[in-house]
Design a protein around this nucleic acid. Structure first.
Lengths: 351, 351
DNA sequence: GGTAGGGGTGGGAGCGCTCCCATGTGTGAT
DNA sequence: ATCACACATGGGAGCGCTCCCACCCCTACC
């Protein structure tokens, strides 16, 4: 593709020039009005705005992009092959927030997929061509080369979550540590004492932080966790099942489980059932994400809610600010924000 | 927004002209090579391709769009306010398919939201400005003016599902009728005889077709359904609850329920539970969509799977074909495709 | 040997906009 | 009245590409 015929040369959509003629002013003046420059008299501005309305003028983006060397669009990069990503509402919610934040602007949202090798290459090329003003990176792995490429190209970018404690890019994360602490604190307050945890992939920073929060809450309460109460899942339901089976084998006396995601909690629930443990009577269960699964599970799952849509909104606003920032790149680099949004424990019947 | 400074004028990215100089040919020739025109000698083509590779040349989209009056991008219009839309994986899956189909092309994917009135207006303006080559319409209501606008502007468009039996736009739908028939047939084959149904909003064509399929299957089997076995939901969980309560009140003897969506089935399940009916022992339950909820429900829900990602892929291919079609618009109008993709019954423990 | 014809090629003329410099035009200070 | 300066305005010069016409040269045919 990429060829295709030019379709019926724009059935006479009005141009800047025509607006100028109609309003009896010069092109430059119309351009100033369109772009909200203050250097136009009130009277002239009114005349131009009238002409714009009469003609139904809409600026041609391509021409503007060409002349001004900006695109008025940002890209969301989706690490597609992870089907986990698509099977959870995370993606939809982030996009939801991004869309909301963008609604107040003229910016367009581009969706790009960084799935296979080929797609990654063409994405790199795409970014090198500066075809977007900024990039939103969703769910990036620690070893992804994309953030470095963006830094090198000096393309504004914001990452959801972060890759490590010292993230160089601007980032918006949720308080995984605090959420985990709250979840475990809740279990403690319910009288549970032998609290196990199922972690996500620990090369994902957020998963590590959830584990940290678990350890911290228990330690603070004077019940430092023994190592055999921690099992590692990989964010999948099956991983949750395996981890739960391990835990039961090692510590049949456990009376609560904090899972690093709802999906893993779903797997754990199944194994607990099969082992004849009642939830929450014998074992309390808490998840993370507060996804649809949590509400529909039997019993409904207590879970830590992340403000995902708000993360999307915040990411977008941070990105727009970076794009608008005209200071030298060194200053911009120093000003990069690291935002952490609060999480919230949603109590249901599983605990 | 929409203003913002031009960022560091393109640190010398190579242009067509520079490639031409390097390859020792004219601009026109390079353009021909880039666009795969056959009117270039093998020898010249090789020289140009080498120069392109050496310089790392990437065409400037804005310039191309301006000169050729095409954008190489398509838009997916998302009817955002429907939170139902975002809470189900439908959206993600469609996008997934669209992305896959687009991976083979140079087309870009734009996401536009048609939420509030303001957004709708700016979308209309956006489309009027022909800023995309084509549009994918997802989940459109029967009375939405957008499709008509698109037709009038002669912008190629494909709709997911359809608005009525005689859809004027090209469309890709799943076989709702067949899926419902299969679901009901399955219940009949399991010996159920008093089969009720909970419909979605009947102004959604697909919901009507599911009801039609239900009626058809029962009629064909010689058990034409009585009217009191049909209750109307609105695709929400709460609607499912209410409909189920109605049904139980009217026909306490029912032994199976076919719900028009998994979410409504979830609501129904709850009411059945509370009424002391065991699933599937007393009442068999079948849903529609095969969403994550179906898998995680207790007991896991038998459901009709729609090939959503494939719908996205197919829609995209149909749209690309329409965009490439250069015949007069009357001929194009006649050639609009109406595609129906098969559905599949996924049997689980609820039936 | 002359004349069509065709494939291959170069480059002018825009596409519609922004940027910026040059040119008014009015104000206040000198 | 004179100068300086700010503000408002017009329009030339591109931005990088595609389209298309003119041109060249070579083959084929008369």
């Amino acid at each position: 593709m990429g060829s295709g015929q030019p379709r019926g040369r724009s059935g006479g959509r009005p141009t800047l020039e025509e607006v100028a003629v109609r309003a009896g002013v010069g092109r430059g003046t119309v351009s100033r009005v369109i772009n909200g420059s203050p250097r136009v008299s009130e009277h002239t501005r009114a005349a131009v705005e009238e002409a714009v309305a009469e003609l139904g003028y809409v600026p041609n983006t391509a021409a503007r992009a060409l002349a001004a060397n900006r695109t008025d669009s940002i890209a969301v990069v989706v690490p597609e092959p992870e089907s986990r990503f698509f099977s959870e509402p995370y993606f939809s919610d982030i996009i939801h927030g991004v869309g909301a934040a963008l609604a107040d602007t003229d910016m367009q949202l581009l969706l790009t997929f960084a799935g296979g090798d080929r797609e990654r290459r063409s994405l790199a090329q795409y970014l090198s061509a500066h075809r977007v003003d900024g990039v939103l990176l969703v769910s990036v792995h620690a070893d992804d080369p994309l953030p470095d490429l963006l830094e090198q190209l000096e393309i504004p970018a914001v990452i959801s979550g972060r890759r490590s404690a010292e993230e160089r890019l601007a980032s918006v994360d949720s308080d995984n540590f605090g959420g985990a602490r709250a979840a475990v604190g809740h279990l403690l307050s319910r009288g549970r004492r032998t609290i196990a945890t199922i972690t996500g992939r620990l090369d994902v920073y957020g998963a590590q932080r959830r584990l940290d929060g678990y350890v911290d809450a228990l330690t603070e309460a004077g019940h430092p966790p023994s190592a055999d109460l921690t099992a590692h899942g990989d964010f999948t339901e099956d991983g949750g099942r395996r981890a739960m089976a391990d835990l039961l084998a090692r510590r049949p006396d456990l009376d609560a489980v904090f899972a690093g995601s709802d999906v893993m909690a779903a797997g754990a629930r199944q194994v607990l059932r099969e082992a004849g443990r009642r939830i929450p009577d014998d074992v309390a269960l808490v998840g993370f994400d507060d996804s649809a699964i949590a509400r529909h599970m039997d019993p409904p799952l207590t879970s830590v809610r992340q403000p995902i849509a708000e993360m999307g909104r915040t990411m977008t606003n941070v990105l727009l600010a970076e794009i608008a920032d005209t200071r030298p790149s060194a200053a911009r680099r120093l000003a990069r924000q690291q935002i952490v949004l609060p999480t919230e424990l949603v109590c249901r019947e599983s605990s």
